[in-house]
């Protein structure tokens, strides 16, 4: 490229050097998008929404840190993780949309709160808002990425070729997220009295939301062979968390569980009060201009 006229390429139509210009479909190019024989398509769509919404909502929360992180390197790292999760969300919502006849934006912006299927852990405020701080954010990321990594690792065996490909692509990303969270957990657990206290408080804050991650939903059961039963991940994830907490000199919080609401939780579209505000902010512009193109 020429430095004397930075504008010269502006009017041209070359798309090759656009990082996001051609969307995410390229990431899965060559993947067979046909539905496996005999699969319950509605259940498949619901399952993709569950995993897609987890990523989308967690990404939305992480991006709140942008320009607010404790140091520049961390601004970059958290944005990176948010971007990875956003990428996963887009692929999963698109897969759900292939069943539902909708695109990723219709699913992200035009569903109401009761139609979102993410776990509560993804949506709660863990900072930089008043609901937490950097340690709480790290605690959530540690739990979320350890669980999702275990899940994606099994999902590589899915009978759905698209889920399988998404899992394969996501594994490396999630391994980095977990590693990043684990390193900070150790640093904060070991660092100063204050950081130790805050890290322990962060774990205590997120722990009641851990149990939901491992609760088998009817969709998981219907999709045997396509989906992963999260209950089967518990001991693996517990082992990882235990090792990290040991290295950090932190105590595993008591197994308190947030109560369900009339038997329902995030996977059933029943959320915490924080979710309404999160969606209001995320969706308002898209909904304010119907028919607009972005």
């Amino acid at each position: 490229m020429s430095f004397d006229n930075a504008y010269e390429s502006l009017l041209g139509g070359e798309d090759a050097h656009w990082a996001f210009g051609t969307g995410f479909s390229e990431a899965l190019s060559g993947v067979n998008r046909e539905f496996p024989a005999g699969v319950d398509r509605d259940a498949l769509a619901a399952y993709c929404l569950m995993l897609g919404d987890d990523a989308l909502i967690c990404s939305q929360r992480l991006a709140e840190w942008c320009s607010r992180a404790p140091e520049l390197e961390e601004d970059i790292a958290l944005a990176n993780i948010a971007l990875d999760l956003l990428g996963q969300a887009r692929m999963l919502l698109t897969r759900a949309g292939e069943v539902l006849g909708k695109d990723e934006d219709e699913l992200a912006y035009l569903r109401d709160e009761r139609e979102f299927r993410n776990v509560h852990l993804a949506e709660i405020d863990c900072g930089p808002g008043p609901g937490g701080d950097f340690a709480t954010t790290i605690a959530r990321l540690l739990v979320f990425s350890s669980w999702r990594l275990a899940l994606f690792s099994r999902l590589r065996g899915s009978a759905d070729p698209v889920l399988k490909a998404i899992a394969e692509k996501g594994l490396k990303e999630l391994a980095y997220h977990r590693d990043h969270a684990a390193q900070w957990t150790v640093r904060l657990g070991d660092g100063t009295d204050e950081s130790h206290r805050r890290m322990q408080a962060g774990l205590d804050r997120v722990w009641p939301f851990v149990d939901e991650l491992f609760a088998t939903h009817s969709v998981d059961t219907v999709l045997a062979g396509v989906a992963v039963d999260p209950a089967s991940l518990r001991s693996e994830v517990d082992g990882v968390l235990e090792a990290v907490l040991d290295a950090a000199g932190l105590t595993r919080p008591a197994d308190t569980k947030a109560a369900r609401v009339a038997g329902m939780a995030g996977r059933d579209g029943v959320h915490t009060e924080a979710m309404g505000y999160l969606l209001a902010e995320m969706q308002h512009l898209h909904r304010s201009l119907p028919g607009a193109v972005w």
Binding site: A19, F20, G23, L56, Q60, A63, E64, C66, S67, L72, D75, I76, A79, N80, A82, L83, L86, G87, A89, R90, L93, E104, D105, A108, Y109, E281, M282, H284, L285, H286, L289, A292, W294
Partner: peptide, 22 residues
């Protein structure tokens, strides 16, 4: 970033702000 009207625009904007930190 939190209000970007499409997921693609959200990704582009987040990546851009991240570049600025870089």
């Amino acid at each position: 970033i939190s209000r970007a009207p499409s997921l693609r625009r959200k990704a582009i904007l987040l990546a851009k702000v991240q570049d600025e930190a870089g």
